[in-house]
């Protein structure tokens, strides 16, 4: 028998879920052969959101720390890449590594003190940090170009630009899914979940909880940082108020929560769900910020009725019935 194996992973309805998922991925892989620029752009955006959500899932979903500042990693990834390309004249891929490394380093240095905080203290500290980093990018003009931003070269050859960014984002999403699977079947994954379930008990099992939390934080920075790197180059422009926008943090959290926090496919499915929801809402309620209000209401309903997200039902753990929705209210004491 495998120690700490994931034998329950493929049981139940998850079998066909993975089959469906495989077909969907295949369709996405061949899509650029047929689809227009609009669809490529839309899906690239969804992929980048999914990648960030996969990352947020490590710290927020599996480890249970409500990180509200993950956009900082996105912004640092974008700036690190842009600066490496402009100042060091790196080509895109080495520059992406610089951006990702910067985001991860920041996560480790910041995570060591901040991850000692719990609950809403941690949440507030991460919001504050993300805001602070955005301000630094805005005012450290000599280094970051300040509020004028940084302009990057176009992808060359430009006629393949759409395909390039589509596939690179798609690869990042797949990498994220693989990373989640790989981590969660091993000891590190179990240390994250143990911290979420009971941090004191995790310590009693001999888990270095500081390392568990920092590793989850750093890997979530990896995903958001890489997404930021791709986004910056795609946009050919990196601006503080754009890449440090708190909306991005909210989007990754919402995607994860909609799809199912602490599951492998949840954030990926959630990103699509979020995007479809937002598009429908804008379409039907195009008056100003009203669609955001509706979105807020939907999120509250999701949190109340399906706190484990859609994955609970897709995986066959629960049936989507009224009684199971009401049961959720009772068990989660909402």
């Amino acid at each position: 028998m495998k120690i700490l194996g994931l034998e329950k992973f493929f049981s139940g309805r998850k079998g066909w879920l993975w089959g469906l998922f495989g077909l969907f991925m295949l369709a996405l892989a061949v899509l650029p052969l047929f689809a227009s620029g609009f669809w490529l752009r839309t899906l690239t955006l969804i992929f980048l959101l999914a990648a960030m959500a996969e990352g947020w899932n490590y710290i927020g979903g599996y480890t249970g720390y409500a990180a509200f500042g993950n956009v900082a990693f996105f912004g640092i990834g974008a700036y690190g890449t842009a600066l490496a390309m402009l100042r060091l004249h790196f080509s895109f891929f080495p520059a992406l590594l610089v951006g990702v490394a910067a985001a991860m380093l920041f996560a480790i240095v910041i995570g060591l003190p901040v991850l000692r905080l719990k609950g809403h203290y941690f949440a507030i500290a991460t919001v504050a940090l993300a805001t602070a980093v955005g301000e630094v990018a805005d005012y450290w003009t000599d280094f970051t170009g300040g509020s004028a931003g940084l302009t990057l070269p176009f992808f060359d050859p430009i006629e393949y630009s759409g395909q390039f960014f589509y596939y690179i984002s798609f690869l990042l999403v797949i990498f994220g899914l693989w990373l989640t699977y790989f981590v969660m079947k091993g000891k590190m994954g179990y240390s994250w979940v143990a911290v979420r379930e009971d941090e004191d008990a995790a310590k009693m099992m001999g888990i270095n909880t500081t390392w568990a939390k920092v590793s989850a934080f750093a890997l979530s920075a990896l995903m958001a940082g890489a997404a930021g790197a791709i986004y910056g180059y795609w946009n050919t422009f990196v601006l503080p108020e754009e890449v440090f926008k708190i909306d991005y943090t909210l989007q990754m959290i919402l995607s994860t929560v909609l799809g199912g926090p602490g599951t492998i496919l949840g954030p990926f499915i959630g990103a699509f769900l979020y995007y479809i929801l937002i598009t429908l809402l804008v379409f039907f309620f195009h008056v100003g910020a009203f669609h955001e209000t509706i979105l807020g209401v939907i999120i509250i309903l999701v949190m109340v009725f399906t706190p484990q997200g859609l994955m609970d039902f897709l995986s066959g753990k629960k049936k989507l019935t009224l009684s199971s929705l009401l049961e959720n209210i009772r068990t989660h004491k909402v």
Binding site: Y190, A194, E197, D198, D200, A201, M205
Partner: peptide, 26 residues
Amino acid sequence: ITQVPQGRKLFAGMTVKENILMGAYH
């Protein structure tokens, strides 16, 4: 040195088997 804590402090979302094996984590 290991303790069986007051209030049990199990990892509620993990299975019984996973909980038992978590004891051997180190």
